[in-house]
């Protein structure tokens, strides 16, 4: 058997190997958001077990200082808070106020459990210094909209979450390190409230 014959003989097996490799790559990348054990949601859940959320339902996060941080690649210049939601318990109502006098940056982003964003905004898109948002799944938002058919238009923004579980991140910039307390109080002034569905 010459070398050429041998190569021809092995070619289908090599092709099969690369095909299997490609399938494994695609399947594992697509499955990763569903199976990753330490995704952002799991990390925040763990942080909430160690230090429970405040009375308004906001979990305050550590971003710098050498202590264990909840999420990687967060800006040490930010005071941060998170609200975890599981829409099977009801809608999430998020309220925050914006201090427009000092031109402070406030960013609010809405993430699925895997960390991907489905909506994001900053203080610049607040209405009269207020941010008022209700998050639900497609069915819950549909029911809300059916309810207010004849009422005046609602004041809050309604967001449809692509997944049942996820979280909201509230980031407030400390323009200098001495401003961190003011940034924290801005995060703490936000509130996350679960609106439980009425009993059937």
């Amino acid at each position: 058997m010459t070398l050429k014959d041998r190569a021809f003989d092995l070619f289908p097996w090599a092709a099969a190997m690369f095909l299997i490799a490609a399938i494994v790559l695609i399947v594992s990348v697509l499955l990763m958001p569903a199976v990753a054990p330490r995704d952002a949601y799991a990390r925040l859940l763990e942080a909430a077990r160690n230090a429970p959320p405040n009375a308004h339902g906001v979990l305050l996060l550590q971003t710098a200082g050498g202590e264990e941080v909840a999420l990687p690649f967060e800006d040490p210049a930010m005071a941060e808070g998170a609200c975890l939601f599981d829409l099977s318990n009801g809608l999430l109502h998020l309220r925050a106020s914006v201090d427009s006098e000092n031109d402070d940056y406030l960013g609010i982003s809405f993430h699925g459990a895997g960390g991907a964003i489905f909506h994001a905004m900053t203080d610049r898109s607040s209405i009269n210094g207020k941010i008022d948002i209700i998050i639900g799944d497609a069915r819950q938002i549909g029911e809300l909209e059916a309810d207010d058919a004849e009422e005046p238009p609602p004041e809050e923004i309604r967001l449809t979450s692509p997944s049942q579980r996820g979280f909201v991140l509230i980031r407030s910039l400390a323009k200098r390190p001495s401003d961190i307390d003011r940034a924290r109080s801005s995060v703490e002034s936000a509130s996350c409230e679960v609106i439980a569905p009425p009993p059937p």
């Binding site: 990348v29 999420l71 960013g107 960390g115 991907a116 964003i117 905004m121």
Partner: peptide, 27 residues
Amino acid sequence: IGGPEIDPFARAALARRGEAPLGRDQG
């Protein structure tokens, strides 16, 4: 990674490493 056009590799990388990115309009 900060918008709706995120690709499956970026989704997987975020979930694997436990990150929450900035929204595109945020920064």
